[in-house]
Amino acid sequence: MQPAELIDALRTRRLLAIVRGTDAEAALDTVLTLFAHGIDLVEVSLTTTGALAVLERARAALGDGAALGAGTVLTAADARAAARAGAVFAVTPGVTEAVGQARALGLPVLAGAVTPTEVAAALIEGANAIKLFPAAPAGPAYLRALRDPFPQVDFVPVGGVDAGSAREYLAAGALAVGVGGPLVGAAARPGGDPALAERIAAFRALAEEASCPTS
């Protein structure tokens, strides 16, 4: 995936699904269910049990063209392992050595930052977009303020983003939002979550609404 392709995917989908869980089989099923139900921009957090195997198996099932990435990429070793496992983009929680390593490997990067200094540092390291993280303590008003000195930067709020705040962040100028628990729920844990499909439909409707131009 080229950097422009990641930005275009975020702009078009408006939603990045984040899978983090404690059961590898359930996490894999969650990834495949998301794609099957139309949410086709997904990151698997490396904190997930068996995350690299989940990425490998999901890549084998979905094919080379699927927009499947790795999240919580902290180190250069994490970036290399994620790339080997089939991730086509990387998401970091902060400005770490993983940003430069991922770029060196040809992976576009969504780098975590929350302050202007961190945003500037992430851009210097080569981030293609900024993961505003954690977003919840800052809120949509903070995103509006942050965009004033960084009008050309693409922001993706992550962390505590639910259906209600997702609308507010998108209205405040976010390129997309990253959603984990409010979308995935307990699906990536033992026993799964029978309400996953219902939440997928709700978030898809939200994203499609945000993508429609207003009259």
Rank of each mutant, 00 (worst) to 15 (best):
A163H: 15
V156F: 01
A195F: 07
A98F: 10
Q152F: 06
P213V: 08
L46Y: 01
L146G: 09
I7H: 13
A98L: 07
A202T: 14
E97P: 06
A83L: 08
V31P: 05
T22H: 06
A195N: 10
G63S: 04
T117I: 05
E25A: 13
V73C: 11
F89H: 10
G106F: 08
G126M: 10
A66S: 07
D8E: 15
F203G: 11
P108C: 03
R204S: 14
A187S: 14
L132K: 08
P108T: 06
T33F: 04
D40T: 06
G173P: 05
G173H: 03
T12K: 13
V177S: 09
P3C: 03
A53I: 01
A66L: 01
F89P: 09
R57V: 01
T214A: 14
R57Y: 02
A27L: 01
M1T: 08
V119T: 11
A201R: 12
A77N: 11
I130K: 02
G21A: 05
V54M: 04
G180F: 07
L146I: 06
A163R: 15
D193E: 09
G159V: 05
V158F: 06
E198R: 15
V161Y: 07
G191C: 06
A138N: 06
T75M: 11
F89W: 15
N128M: 00
Q2A: 14
G178I: 01
G38M: 10
E56A: 13
E43D: 12
V91G: 01
A98G: 14
L6D: 13
I200C: 11
A172D: 03
V44L: 09
T117F: 02
L110V: 10
Q101N: 00
T22E: 03
H37G: 07
P116D: 00
T49D: 01
A67Y: 08
R199W: 04
A85Q: 06
S211Y: 09
A172M: 03
V156K: 00
T12Q: 13
L41R: 02
L10Y: 04
A67W: 12
R199E: 08
R199K: 13
G50A: 03
G100T: 15
A36Y: 07
D29S: 10
R167L: 10
S45V: 05
A27R: 05
V184N: 04
A36L: 02
A79S: 07
P134M: 02
A81S: 12
L10V: 11
I39M: 10
E43R: 00
A122D: 11
P93C: 14
A82T: 04
A174H: 07
L16D: 00
A197L: 10
A104H: 10
V91D: 02
A67I: 13
L55P: 12
A90E: 08
A24N: 01
G181M: 04
P194W: 04
L15T: 14
A90C: 12
A87T: 05
G178K: 14
P108M: 00
L46E: 00
T214Q: 13
A61Y: 09
A4D: 15
A176E: 11
P137N: 09
V109L: 11
A51E: 04
L105M: 07
